[in-house]
Design a protein around this nucleic acid. Structure first.
Lengths: 385, 385
DNA sequence: ACCGTTAACGTAAACGTTTACGTTAACGAT
DNA sequence: ATCGTTAACGTAAACGTTTACGTTAACGGT
């Protein structure tokens, strides 16, 4: 009935229809017992007809040079088993064709991407962008790219980001936890695998993971001691959410220092904020109502401290005469506010640098020994305390 | 002489040595004319003997389920041509084995990485980290990852970063040029290819590339006009390096406004700085020596403006009575300095958001039509002018 | 009995590399 | 002539996916 010809036995007579598959008629040849579908005619893609935009591959170079892909790879990678003439010829050819290796394919074979993943809670907070700067610099110098994921202080986002990065995109993970992160199951499941993890600044306490930390406890202790020495007895402490490691450590340092100097801890002097301007203002209002009056404030960040100073001045409260204000982090803002802010410099950039250094070392050595490093900070005295 | 047996014909007699290759003895069987090397005995890697750390692949699932890789892929991707029972079984199996797809392999096949590349001159400058925040947010919501490369205001680094990212790592490139970038050959060679490029904030003038811009010209014009209306006649203008687009545009706006109000342009009132504190201080010193005296300063950024205010106050120069100071960018610092800083809000975050939105649209639609978008800014009046 | 249809699978090519292993031809020594 | 050696290449598998295409068995209609 039809002019269909069997591609195997060339028979035209005993061909039967045999169903429709993917919108194409299928046939069955009774002669040679063979099912088949009529192929479309091939397009004429002889020469580089329609690939203006696509990158040239090893195959393209090999075709032009008249050698195999292996030989091209050998030439470009300076491997042995190739003659000098061939090597130079191929190298020049590759350059003239503007060959660029496909990093995806390389990574797939080499099982290494030369990329670090960084999970950061926010990009618009000075401490974090400063740490990122340190990470970037060290990573770049060591030949590593950086994928930055912003968790936006959100637990779910943090989990999703980590999962994505861990799916073979990175050689190592640097993580600074979000405010909301209180369980660490999503980290634990990746421990002991191929990809090393380093926590920095905000860390999970109690997990066997390498950490790079600021001197939160020591710093808070030193600052508290300094204020006590200056005569303060009612020192208010502005802290972040309770689950954060920096919150716990700074509180510890504060408490230790009070104990050493025989001052009783007053819970009313503690406040937990979420880094937003409103919550800082609220905490300050509450403190100012307390009796006996507060005579010192240790802030969670320089930004909040600067904000506190502005608010106190609006209320005509003298700094440092009535209230001493101390910041944490040594941000630029502290040099702008009046009086200039005394602060504990946590050496934020160095934390980033060290974190990158540590993870790169772990990647290269394959040694994932758990280490914990404290970056020494420094009290910087200016006008506010 | 030896007990070597030919793997083909099992002959033991007519075996000859045939060179050493990669430190292994090679043999030649005269019987069947065959070269061979004695293979090492295979290791017993029956069960998952030594893969505690390696991720499970489609192949692993397929082996356990007793089906082919294709079937597993179909199940996990909800493709047709699979029975519901099989699909559900495989899905559960995958979950219990904690299967995670290898994004590298997916990207290689799909020729798409769902990743945006961003080249930024610095991470520690507020405008940039704010724009990054905007980019990140829009990208995340659209399901795109972000690779951030810090050019560190360096031309060579910018070139290297772009080249790296373009080697199949990203689906689209967002770029904000470094100070040092004056030639744009490294951008031009990537135009018209598969990967769209969008410039933002600092752009190359004259290249056919889509751009998202701040209202630099209009903003400078408005600010200048405002100061003139307030009575200023000697308005100093702090600019960045001459090759930057924002420098040229802000200067244009300034000039236009002066002309409109019949004020002559005085070159001595212009200063080009490199964003470092020292150069700002130097520019200010020079200005203060000029006669007739300056009565207004338009700064390149809020940070520099805040710095200028502090310096002026140290010299007991009254703001805004003697000198009006205007910033650019609406950074947090402007609310801390006293008097609070009047500024032109360039809506930095929106610039980032729009840049991300535009490039994602170009990626999805495949339409690389060149568009240029100006993000409307807004004058914010506070105490300094 | 014969034919047409379809659900549900499998095979293999493709993406662009890297690399273990095979092969060839030329050369020198016996 | 026969054998050992080596430089310089090629072949093919592997990395983990996706997908075009082929195949099988079962079923229903005549």
């Amino acid at each position: 009935m039809s002019r269909v010809k069997c591609p195997k036995c060339q028979n035209v007579e005993r061909i039967l229809k045999a169903g429709i598959i993917r919108n194409k008629q299928r046939y069955f040849c009774k002669e040679c017992v063979y099912h088949f579908i009529i192929k479309k005619v091939q397009k004429d893609n002889h020469i580089l007809s329609d690939k203006p935009a696509s990158q040239v591959s090893l195959q393209d170079i090999a075709s032009v040079a008249g050698v195999s892909i292996t030989t091209v790879s050998r030439a470009l990678k300076n491997r042995p088993d190739i003659s000098i003439q061939t090597r130079e010829y191929i190298k020049e050819l590759a350059k003239s064709l503007n060959y660029q290796p496909n990093i995806l394919a390389q990574s797939l074979v080499n099982k290494s991407t030369h990329t670090l993943g960084v999970i950061i809670p926010s990009l618009e907070t000075t401490v974090f962008s400063t740490m990122l700067g340190g990470i970037q610099e060290v990573a770049s110098k060591a030949g590593y790219r950086v994928i930055i994921c912003n968790s936006n202080e959100n637990h779910e986002t943090e989990i999703a980001n980590i999962q994505g990065l861990m799916n073979h995109l990175i050689d190592g993970l640097l993580i600074c936890h979000s405010i909301q992160t209180s369980s660490y199951e999503h980290i634990r499941i990746h421990l002991g695998k191929r990809i090393p993890i380093v926590q920095f600044y905000r860390v999970a306490i109690g997990l066997p993971i390498s950490q790079i930390l600021a001197e939160d406890e020591v710093g808070a202790e030193k600052v508290t001691a300094y204020l006590i020495k200056k005569g303060c007895r009612r020192i208010a402490l502005l802290l972040g959410p309770k689950n954060l490691s920096i919150t716990q450590k700074r509180f510890n340092g504060y408490k230790i220092s009070l104990e050493k100097h025989g001052i009783n801890l007053d819970i009313k002097l503690l406040a937990h904020v979420d880094f937003l301007q409103e919550s800082v203002e609220k905490a300050l209002e509450d403190w100012l109502k307390i009796n006996p009056k507060i005579d010192g404030i240790i802030s969670i960040s320089d930004k909040s401290a600067a904000q506190i100073i502005r608010l106190l001045k609006k209320k005509s409260i003298k700094i440092p005469e009535e209230i001493n204000v101390f910041g944490f982090g040594n941000e630029f803002t502290g040099q702008i506010v009046e009086p200039e802010l005394s602060t504990f410099d946590t050496k934020t950039r160095i934390i980033g640098e060290e974190a990158a250094r540590l993870i790169i070392e772990q990647i290269i050595s394959g040694n994932q020994e758990v280490t914990s490093k404290l970056i020494p900070g420094e009290i910087i005295l200016r006008g506010s305390a």
